[in-house]
Amino acid sequence: MSVLDDLLRAVEATLFAAQEPLRADEISRHLGGADVRPALAELAAHYAARGVNLVERGGRWHFQTAPDLAHLLRREKEEVRRLSRAATEALAIIAYHEPVSRAEIEAIRGVQTAKGTLDVLMEAGWVRVAGRREVPGRPTIYATTPAFLTHFGLASRADLPGIGELRAAGLLDPVDEAYAVLTGNRDDESVADEADEVDQAD
């Protein structure tokens, strides 16, 4: 058996036994400083067509059920947890603009954000405290977590859909279009006109 084969098996065993996703440098340290990136790439290719896949989410590697088989492992009765519109908007703002403070979230949404809204997102494991802004008052700032990327099947925040993709999928209503303008994700004048119409309607 070659040295590479031994390394592949060692990386595979390390990830299989890990209780949480691991960064490449963490795996490397566990294996005496070996360069594990080629092994990770080869393992990912090996598992791509199998019942479990090796995936990288937010720079961390872990095994997950192949997406097309996930339905086989779901419990018959699932607890449905729906986010309020306020929580959904706050999560979107954090994801697209992180790190952001509560005041910045409120400035974009145009309304106050209850502390419980951010608590719900942190309890879900999708948002974390990322430190404090170095300005007077040193407000707490928030960012997304690797669990957020994993839950939504994103390798990184660069994979977040653009406004054009959301519109093509029919996920934007007129209010969302105006909201997109306010968040800086749209810049065409026609949508700005739509935002004015929403304001006048209010």
Rank of each mutant, 00 (worst) to 15 (best):
V127K: 10
R74G: 07
T88A: 12
L54M: 04
A66N: 13
R57C: 01
A90R: 00
H71Y: 15
T65L: 08
A103Y: 08
H46K: 15
A103S: 14
A86I: 07
V55F: 03
G110E: 09
A103C: 03
R74K: 13
L73Q: 11
A49I: 11
A48R: 13
A41I: 11
I108E: 06
E98G: 10
A114W: 04
L72I: 09
G125N: 09
D68A: 14
Y47E: 10
H71S: 14
R37T: 14
P99V: 07
G33D: 00
R81W: 06
T65Y: 00
E79N: 05
H97E: 12
R102Y: 04
L69R: 15
P99W: 06
L121A: 04
R37M: 06
L54G: 05
P99E: 08
H71L: 12
L31E: 04
A87V: 00
A66L: 03
M122I: 09
Q64L: 04
T88E: 12
A70P: 04
A87T: 03
R37F: 04
A114V: 04
A70K: 14
L54F: 02
L121W: 02
V129N: 13
Y47S: 06
A70G: 03
A87Y: 01
I93Y: 04
A41D: 14
L40P: 00
H62C: 10
K77N: 10
E98H: 12
A70Q: 15
L73D: 13
L43C: 07
R37S: 11
G116H: 03
A41S: 14
A86V: 11
A34K: 11
V100M: 09
T117E: 08
E78A: 14
A130W: 02
H62G: 08
R37A: 06
L69K: 15
V36K: 02
A95H: 09
T88Y: 01
H62N: 05
L72A: 06
A130Y: 03
R57I: 01
W61A: 04
L31R: 00
A90D: 03
V127L: 08
N53V: 15
D119G: 05
L72R: 10
P38R: 10
R74L: 15
V52M: 15
E104P: 01
G32H: 01
A45H: 08
A48H: 13
W126C: 03
L69M: 11
T117A: 08
H46A: 14
S101F: 06
L73V: 13
D119P: 00
A34E: 11
T88N: 05
V129G: 09
I108W: 02
V111C: 07
